[in-house]
């Protein structure tokens, strides 16, 4: 690890003011960043510790929830309001990593964690366009079982590894951001960029911008939600495919639905077309299968991950069927 300066931010303004250049990084609990620094992927000259900024989970005026970016993943998953009104979020978090990591990891850090593509992590021995633009991608013709099938590009097929973000995407979460030029709000689904030919640019955050909170809007559908994660080990493993979904049925028709996917894309993936096709439909196998087909219609696979579209389709159908069954 290259030597760096360490400073603890006393406030959001203090944190933002401490960022002078691209060599400065915000430090959450370090569950991803510290590892990336050891691997030589991240080489910051200065870390600004933001773990002692707001970690409050509080109701908003609109009836939603505002979660401080420094809240631990555990705190969010255990929060009574989250469990009752946003169960998919609690389940998504609980399915991720281990209890120890969830106790440490912050909400802001979870959102900004980077891909676990093993070629991305091998600084000396592998090529990676995300790590070094223009270098080439060893995953395209290499081991890509864990890699993405939606939103990928010829430059990069890495996935965003978060579980939490998949549920946040389904719930229209809004990311609160503070920067030198003031504050702004960005929908979570618009925070991460698709790789295109610039896979090293992962979010829309500008230099020095800090995620301060995540806001969950108040929506009745979120209470009827769940999260299902499919993986190679029963626990403590990244998703091959995950689905966060919510379903609201009124008078025998689907009144509202949310479908977001994890493990298949460079960002938390909201399947809006699939959702649109379900609105007004009679909940059931045929509608769910059609929606799942639509969700994966744009899939581009490599030999190692060719199974993912089918796995994702099946998982979507199963999750929606469960929700439909539970709602009756």
């Amino acid at each position: 690890m290259t030597p760096f300066d360490y400073a603890r931010a006393r406030s959001e303004q203090d944190a933002v003011a401490r960022v002078k250049d691209a060599g400065t990084k915000y430090l959450g609990a370090g569950t991803n960043l510290v590892d990336l620094m050891r691997e030589g992927v991240e080489v910051p000259s200065r870390l600004v510790d933001v773990t002692r900024l707001s970690s409050r989970i509080e109701p908003t005026d609109g009836g939603g929830l505002l979660i401080g970016a420094a809240a631990s993943n555990t705190a969010v998953a255990e929060d009574a309001a989250v469990r009752a009104r946003y169960p998919a979020l609690a389940r998504a978090i609980l399915s991720g990593a281990s209890a120890q990591i969830r106790n440490m990891a912050t909400v802001g850090g979870n959102i900004l964690q980077r891909t676990r593509c093993t070629y991305f992590l091998d600084v000396e021995g592998a090529r990676c366009n995300k790590r070094q633009p223009g270098q080439g991608c060893d995953a395209l013709e290499g081991f890509n079982r864990g890699h993405g099938v939606l939103g990928v590009s010829p430059a990069c097929i890495a996935t965003h590894p978060s579980d939490m973000c998949v549920a946040l995407a389904a719930f229209d979460a809004v990311v609160h951001i503070a920067g030198a030029n003031g504050r702004r709000h960005v929908p979570l689904v618009d925070l991460h960029r698709l790789p295109g030919d610039t896979p090293h640019l992962e979010t829309v955050l500008e230099l020095g911008e800090l995620i301060t909170a995540v806001e969950l809007p108040s929506q009745t559908i979120t209470a009827r939600s769940t999260y299902r994660k499919v993986r190679d080990r029963a626990s403590y493993a990244f998703a091959l495919v995950s689905v966060a979904a919510a379903l609201e049925v009124a008078e025998g028709r689907i009144a509202d639905v949310r479908i977001a996917l994890g493990g298949v894309a460079p960002k938390p993936w909201r399947a809006r077309e699939a959702e649109a096709t379900l609105i007004g439909a009679v909940p059931g196998q045929s509608a769910f299968v059609a929606a799942a087909e639509l969700a994966l219609a744009g899939a581009r696979t490599r030999p190692g991950n060719a199974f993912k579209p089918e796995l994702a389709r099946r998982t979507i159908v199963a999750v929606l069927s469960d929700l439909a069954g539970a709602g009756q």
């Binding site: 360490y6 569950t31 510290v34 120890q100 440490m104």
Partner: peptide, 15 residues
């Protein structure tokens, strides 16, 4: 009282 991983914890953060 909460379990964490000491390998990922920069000691300075736990002042």
């Amino acid at each position: 009282g909460e379990r964490v991983l000491a390998c990922l914890a920069l000691a300075a953060q736990y002042d």
